[in-house]
Structure formats: structure tokens, C-alpha cells
Write a protein that binds this DNA or RNA. Structure first.
Length: 431
RNA sequence: UCCUCGAUAGCUCAGCGGUAGAGCAUCCGGCUGUUAACCGGAGGGUCGUAGGUUCGAAUCCUACUCGAGGAGCCA
């Protein structure tokens, strides 16, 4: 019996015999020597089997292994300059575990459609593994940042009686004899939680039944939604830039090899530190008009507008104080200019678009009740939300960050579908 | 929902009116340092579906199906 370890830790065992367990990523052979590329989820390492050294029987076992067969390898860890990761294994013995016949994903090129149909296998490749590691590290950094600032994680429901904003299409399901919808945002519940616990955040899936078909959209995606009692718009924006900067710097220092595998140009991330540039909606419209765009005050930005605005800066940019009537009903009007609201969207650089939407929320009972009437929102569904303003209401703010867009930006991905392990897209529910 | 593009071997693609092709993968053989290894050989096809034009259609036309990229909406 030899110590069992992982590829990530073989450096601690140089000169010793260890046991590794994993899958055969690739194999090259040359008559009397075979090179087995073993992967175990923590990395890839080359295991060398020489016929004269291991003997006929073990050499034969190696030659029968096919791509993605699972196996246990016993061998000596050796430092070797020729190896990609710096270490190699000299094979003493192999134990085949599960065979793999006609593995569909080869090491050559594949099309997107084929890869998505085989997503359950595609995630085994080094690039996809690296993206999933970065995603996990981003979520860890987000939670660490918020936990260290005394936020409490609260999980809002996924089944809801109706929508938060009333605009987007929701997934409708039967809830026994009632109608229910899959959540499109936990925000309203987080507002209730903030009145109970002060500073809270959620992390979970949200659903939009929109027929969106672009590289920035998924039908099911994850949001992180912090909500803070007594926070003003200004406090909110400041928290967001510290939050994003912490996450990016954390990934840079913890995921160096993953970012390299993905091929990310990390010089574009190093500058992501506070303060972030800020434009008011007014400034942004004026700037776009100067660039020759046909856009008027009161219009919302399109994707090309967002890209052009963000391209001016080397870090994310806030666009704040949008016109009241193009934003959600619950946003607090600017006391000096009621035609705009105290909100900010954060646009990521390099054309990744909006990654955060946040605002100060209306805390006044009468104003919120008036908004309900203006937007024809049924009080039987939203009564509880209005009631929060009746019992010790306080100014409060929050924001929602789209996880897949953040992962896509930090990893430099072409499309958000690679940022989710099993993406749900228009026309794609399998696997 | 709209606009654009695509569908040929398991995969990636070429062929664009006259006998269905290549590389990779698979199988067989060779090779003691390979890095998407290489060299030789073999098997592998209802050219997305339906109809039309033509002496003849993978190729031209029409419809449909499926997918991709973009727009709108959003995170």
C-alpha cells in the first residue's frame, strides 16, 4: 500500500511511490514506452511506462487503456524538466477501474452544438475544468467578502406567487390548486431579511422565460443579491466597487494556473481596483450623442451603447441616476430631481455589459403604494412587501450581480454558456 | 419575435450540375522521450426532412425541422 494523493500534491512526494486515481486524458506510445496522461480533477500528469521496467503484463494493461478509462496508478514521483507540470510518474503498476469505449470528445476541434450536447463529458476537458474552478473561487470570494463584513446569508424562495418587477416573462408552474412562478429575483425577500438581520445576501438560481438569444443570456442563471438596511445609494456604490475589486484580486492570486489554461490576458484584470469611474445617465447620453448615436434622454441603452461606454475605461464603470420611468417601480427617486432614481448599473469592460444592477429602495409607504397603483401591481400579491414600509421602515439599498456574466468577464469567455456547468438556454435543456 | 448564417463519415470540414472526399477518431501493423506525437494499412455515408427543376441534384428552387451569431429584454 502506497500513500494515496492527488496530482495537485505530487510535489510533496518526490522520490516516493504514490497511488493516483483518475482518468486517462490521452496516451502516446512508441513500441516499448508509453506515456499516459492521467487527470484526476486537480490536474494532469504524465505517467511513463517502460516495457523493460514494468514487464510484459503491466505494459499490456497500459496499452489496452482507452481515452477516459478510469484507472489507479502506482508509481514513483519524479521531478522532470520535460514535464508540463514539472513532475512525472514512473509507472510501477496500473489497475483499470472502468473502461471507456468510443469516447465521443476527441482532442481535436469540435463545434458548439456537439459540445453542448455532450456537456456532461465536455466539463472533463482542462479548459472547462478551469472555468468551473474559477467560478467556484469567485463564489467563495464573494461569500468571504460579505461574511467578513458581517453580512448574513439568507436564502429566498425559488417558488414565488408572482414577479418582482412585473416586466420579464416568468416560468409558470402549478402549485397544487394555485399558480406559482420560478423566481426572477430574490430582492423583495432580501429587503424583508435586511429589516430582520441588517445586512444580508443571497446566492442562488434565478429564471427568466425570455426568448433571449445572445452570448450574454441564460434562461437559468445565478445571482448574488446583497441588501443593506440604512445604506444610502452612495454607500451602496462604494460597497460594490470594493466587492468587485476584492473578487477580481482574489481570483488573480488564487487561480493563476486556471486563468493560464483558459488563456486569459490578466493584465486587463490587474487594474480593477477602487475607485471605479462614474458617469451619470445624463453624462452618458450626452457622450453617446457626441459619438453620433441617435439616442435621446429617456431612452434605455442598447448593447452597443453599453459596450462603447465601457470601452473608454480599464475597469468597470458605474452609470447612475437613470430616468425614473425606465427603471423598476421600487427605486428611490433622487430628492433633488424626482425624474431620476438613485440607482447604478455597473458595466464590465471589454464588452461584457451589465454585471450589476442596484439601487436605493423606496422606504416611504405612501410613495410605494402610489407606485403600486401606477404599475397596476395587485396588492394581494405584494401586500407583504408594502407592509415592510409600515413597521419601522428605514432607508435601504441593495444590488444584484449576475454570476455567469462575472465569470465570463473574469475568464474572458466568448459566451456565458461556458460559465455555467449545465447551461439552460433557449432551445437547449439537455443534458 | 425579427435579421443573418449553417446542416455531407463518430468529429472538424472540402466538394457547389456529371462515379462521395480529406484530416482526426476507431481497428490492425511499426517505433524507448512523446507533448492535439509520428509512419503504413483497413473499415466507416439514406449528403437534415419533404417536394420541385433537370437526361442527371450533395450541388439549383420552395417549404419545413434543427442549430449558431446578432437585435430587443435583461443580470
Amino acid at each position: 500500500m502506497y500513500p494515496v494523493t492527488t496530482i495537485h500534491h505530487v510535489g510533496d512526494y518526490v522520490g516516493q511511490t504514490v497511488t493516483l486515481r483518475g482518468w486517462l486524458y490521452n496516451k502516446r506510445s512508441s513500441g516499448k514506452i508509453q506515456f499516459l496522461q492521467l487527470r484526476d480533477g486537480t490536474g494532469v500528469i504524465q505517467c511513463v511506462a517502460v516495457k523493460n521496467e514494468v514487464g510484459e503484463e503491466i505494459f499490456e494493461k497500459c496499452s489496452k487503456l482507452t481515452q477516459e478509462s478510469s484507472l489507479i496508478v502506482h508509481g514513483v514521483v519524479r521531478q522532470d524538466e520535460r514535464a508540463a507540470g514539472g513532475y512525472e510518474i514512473t509507472v510501477l503498476d496500473v489497475e483499470p477501474v472502468g473502461e471507456s469505449v468510443d469516447y465521443p470528445i476527441t482532442l481535436k476541434e469540435h463545434g458548439v452544438d456537439f459540445l453542448l450536447d455532450h456537456r456532461h463529458l465536455w466539463i472533463r476537458t482542462p479548459r472547462q475544468r478551469a472555468i468551473l474552478k474559477v467560478r467556484a473561487e469567485i463564489m467563495r470570494a464573494m461569500a468571504d467578502f460579505l461574511d467578513s463584513r458581517e453580512f448574513t446569508r439568507v436564502d429566498p424562495p425559488i417558488l414565488t406567487p408572482s414577479s418582482a418587477e412585473g416586466t420579464t416573462e416568468l416560468f409558470h408552474i402549478k402549485y397544487f390548486d394555485e399558480d406559482a412562478y420560478l423566481t426572477q429575483s430574490g430582492q423583495m425577500y432580501m429587503e424583508a431579511a435586511a429589516m430582520a438581520l441588517g445586512k444580508v445576501y443571497s446566492m442562488g438560481p434565478t429564471f427568466r422565460a425570455e426568448k433571449s438569444k445572445t452570448r450574454r443570456h441564460l434562461i437559468e442563471f445565478w445571482m448574488i443579491e446583497p441588501e443593506m438596511a440604512f445604506y444610502t445609494h452612495e454607500d451602496n456604490v462604494k460597497l460594490q466597487e470594493e466587492f468587485i475589486s476584492y473578487v477580481v484580486q482574489h481570483v488573480l492570486s488564487h487561480c493563476e494556473s486556471e486563468l493560464k489554461t483558459i488563456g486569459r490576458d490578466i493584465s486587463k484584470l490587474e487594474s480593477v481596483k477602487p475607485p471605479f469611474p462614474r458617469l451619470t445617465y445624463d453624462d452618458a447620453i450626452a457622450w453617446l450623442q457626441k459619438q453620433g448615436h441617435d439616442i435621446q434622454w429617456g431612452d434605455d441603452f442598447g448593447a452597443p451603447h453599453e459596450t462603447e461606454l465601457a470601452e473608454q475605461f480599464d475597469r468597470p464603470v458605474f452609470i447612475e441616476k437613470y430616468p425614473t420611468n425606465i427603471k423598476a417601480f421600487y427605486m428611490q427617486p433622487d430628492p433633488n430631481r424626482p425624474e431620476v432614481v438613485l440607482c447604478a448599473d455597473l458595466l464590465a469592460p471589454e464588452g461584457y455589459g451589465e454585471i450589476i444592477g442596484g439601487s436605493e429602495r423606496i422606504h416611504d409607504y405612501d410613495l410605494l403604494k402610489q407606485r403600486f397603483e401606477e404599475h397596476n401591481l395587485p396588492e394581494e400579491s405584494y401586500g407583504w412587501y408594502l407592509e415592510l414600509r409600515k413597521y419601522g421602515s428605514v432607508p435601504h439599498s441593495g444590488f444584484g450581480i449576475g454570476l455567469e456574466r462575472t465569470v465570463a468577464w473574469i475568464c474572458g469567455l466568448e459566451h456565458v454558456r461556458e460559465a455555467n456547468p449545465f447551461p439552460r438556454m433557449l432551445y437547449r435543456l439537455y443534458p
